[in-house]
């Protein structure tokens, strides 16, 4: 077992710290996660396929992934705008706005959930203005998109922001000297520099939306086939003591998350190479 091979180094404590790291990682993360995979393998292939392709389950995938996609797109547009405004322009209160961007990370999801549901309910602060126009947000799929946009926003801003900071103005000066208009510079010089980070932020926001539970269930309405997200369906199955069903669906979700994680890692590698 020379998997973790140590190279020459005078600092002490390598064996102990690495040993503890691997031990703690195994008991908290790896073994519990493998339980999910092993439990799923207890099902026959036929059972597994029937469970994960049942109409109600498929409808929940469509809602979850569809809403996460829309939310990630909204966040990509506004996230880039916010990152740009925060780095490039000066305005009063910029520091406070910058700190507030991380609110969705810091605010517990249940609090976000009940608050969004209240604001966007037909007599809420925002909902009362939308209601007369026939726009219903709370208790519809639109509410799911809204909650996912809220929790995904910091991912795009915080991946794009450092890249905007790193852009050297010489590039823009050169483009201007060569006769480019500001619009051409933005589209042909700035945007290509930002695009890897925008894609990464998009993927992070999408991945977060797909797994999200707490902020969504209060505003979604949770109607089977219409506004029921996959994580909620897992909980419903658990409450009905359908452990096999819950496990099978969870396994599909887990595989999707790992695929997304892999894609995000590759994107980040690509953008790092791109930046050099």
């Amino acid at each position: 077992m020379k998997f973790f091979k140590r190279h020459n180094n005078v600092l002490p404590g390598f064996g102990v710290t690495l040993g503890f790291t691997v031990f703690y990682l195994s008991i908290i993360v790896l073994i519990p996660l493998s339980a999910l995979v092993f439990k799923t393998m207890g099902l026959t292939w036929g059972e597994f396929i029937t469970t994960v392709t049942a109409p109600r389950v498929v409808a929940s995938y469509k809602i979850t992934f569809g809403a996460a996609l829309v939310a990630a797109l909204i966040n990509s547009v506004f996230g880039v705008l916010v990152a740009w405004v925060l780095v490039r322009y000066n305005f009063p209160g910029r520091r406070i706005v910058d700190a507030l961007i991380d609110l969705p990370f810091a605010l517990p999801t249940a609090v976000a959930g009940i608050t969004l549901a209240t604001i966007y309910s037909p007599n809420g602060w925002v909902g009362r203005f939308l209601e007369p126009h026939g726009i219903k947000v709370a208790f519809t799929p639109l509410g799911i998109v809204l909650a996912m946009t809220f929790i995904g926003l910091p991912f795009v801003v915080r991946t794009v922001q450092p890249v905007v900071e790193e852009i050297e103005t010489e590039l823009e000066e050169a483009a201007t000297c060569l006769g480019a208009t500001r619009w051409q510079t933005l589209v042909r010089v700035i945007f290509p520099l930002l695009s890897p980070s925008i894609l990464t932020g998009f993927a992070l926001s999408f991945a977060r939306g797909v797994g999200e539970y707490g902020s969504i269930i209060f505003i979604a309405g949770n109607m089977p086939m219409v506004s029921e997200i996959t994580p909620l369906l897992i909980i419903t199955k658990l409450e009905q003591f359908d452990y096999r069903g819950a496990t099978a669906i969870a396994c599909v979700m887990l595989l999707t998350s790992f695929t997304l994680l892999l894609a995000i890692n590759l994107l980040q590698k690509w953008s790092r190479r791109h930046a050099e």
Partner: peptide, 14 residues
């Protein structure tokens, strides 16, 4: 990258 719901489920499974 694991959904919170799954993070709870795995401990129920064990």
């Amino acid at each position: 990258s694991v959904s919170p719901v799954i993070s709870g489920l795995i401990y129920v499974l064990i």
